[in-house]
């Protein structure tokens, strides 16, 4: 009993801190890790008619332990790789160029926000975040309304006499990229802003004082010091953009098959969850391996940096 009292007395300090860490951990375990494990399992089973539409990977039946383990889904992907390679390439291409365009727009915007007065910074940041508070579907439908052959832009152009016939803007690469940038721009701006706002203005003044021109200051000081923001923003845009399904489906034409669409078809049209899961897992592996490798390299550099302690000159 006394032992228990002592245990409880020591509890709050420890649990308080642990609870703070445990809550997000539990959240990640339940809503991120378990679904991932489930997807991994499904990718190694066979499809069946019923609910759920796949055989359990393992279990205990009348004859004891059984398993439906198969690598057939992956073998199928390998066999028909050319059917999946095209959409994968389309998706990666779309994600890559969307990231570039976002970066091109976000970089000056983030710089401008970071160099504004404190009062304006808050207002501008809220304006950047504002689209997040409306449904993305709603925003995309509004965009369709703008870009349609009988939409606002074409109507205005015709009325002003700038164009003779409606321009084809919907169902083109143009409309897809507009949608992608519209959706993902804030994810690029925020990490860039975070590194830029910490950039000491005295560094720029010092560079100017030492004779650097504007472009030289950008190349030698601003760009190298904002690379962490560029990397973070690019990953935040690129990764979800690869799996993007809604934007190409709503704004794009039928000719451009994206990975997201392929996944959707496998899941809901073919109801072949195992193959769909195998695609998802493979895509995840292809996307995360380079990132993990990059992080690992980064971590090693930082580790060696730290090992060198300041030493007083003799």
């Amino acid at each position: 009993m006394r032992g228990l009292v002592r245990y409880v007395a020591h509890l709050p300090a420890v649990t308080g801190r642990r609870l703070v860490i445990a809550l997000p951990l539990i959240w990640l375990a339940v809503f991120f890790f378990l679904p991932l494990v489930e997807t991994l399992q499904v990718s190694f089973t066979t499809p069946r008619r019923g609910i759920p539409p796949y055989a359990p990977l393992w279990g205990f039946g009348d004859d004891g332990f059984f398993t439906n383990f198969t690598t057939g889904n992956y073998a199928l992907l390998l066999q028909y790789w050319s059917d999946y390679f095209g959409p994968a390439l389309n998706s990666i291409k779309l994600a890559f160029f969307s990231t570039l365009v976002c970066l091109a727009f976000a970089y000056p915007m983030a710089w401008w926000i970071a160099r504004s007065t404190e009062k304006w910074r808050t207002i501008l940041l809220v304006m950047v975040m504002l689209p997040f508070w409306t449904s993305s579907l709603l925003r995309l439908y509004a965009l369709i309304g703008l870009l349609n052959p009988n939409g606002f832009i074409n109507a205005a152009g015709l009325w002003l006499g700038l164009i003779d016939a409606p321009m084809q803007m919907m169902q083109t690469d143009f409309s897809i990229y507009i949608g992608m940038v519209l959706t993902y721009l804030p994810l690029m701006i925020l990490p860039l802003y975070a590194v830029m706002v910490r950039l000491d203005a005295d560094l720029l003044a010092a560079a100017a004082d030492l004779g650097a021109s504007g472009p030289e200051i950008f190349r030698t000081i601003i760009l190298p010091l904002t690379i962490p923001g560029i990397v973070a923003g690019s990953l935040l845009v690129f990764i979800p953009a690869v799996g993007e399904f809604v934007i190409p489906a709503l704004l794009g034409g039928p000719d451009q098959l994206m990975m997201g669409k392929v996944l959707w078809t496998e899941f809901f049209r073919n109801r072949d969850w195992p193959v769909a899961s195998a695609i998802a897992i493979l895509l995840l592996a292809i996307l995360t391996v380079p990132i993990i490798y990059a992080r690992y390299q980064d971590g090693r550099v930082t580790a060696t940096d730290r090992s060198e302690r300041p030493v007083e000159a003799k």
Partner: peptide
């Protein structure tokens, strides 16, 4: 600043 025969040492060294 760059064209002056002057250089500046910043308080936080920059």
């Amino acid at each position: 600043p760059a064209d002056r025969p002057v250089n500046f040492m910043f308080q936080n060294y920059a």
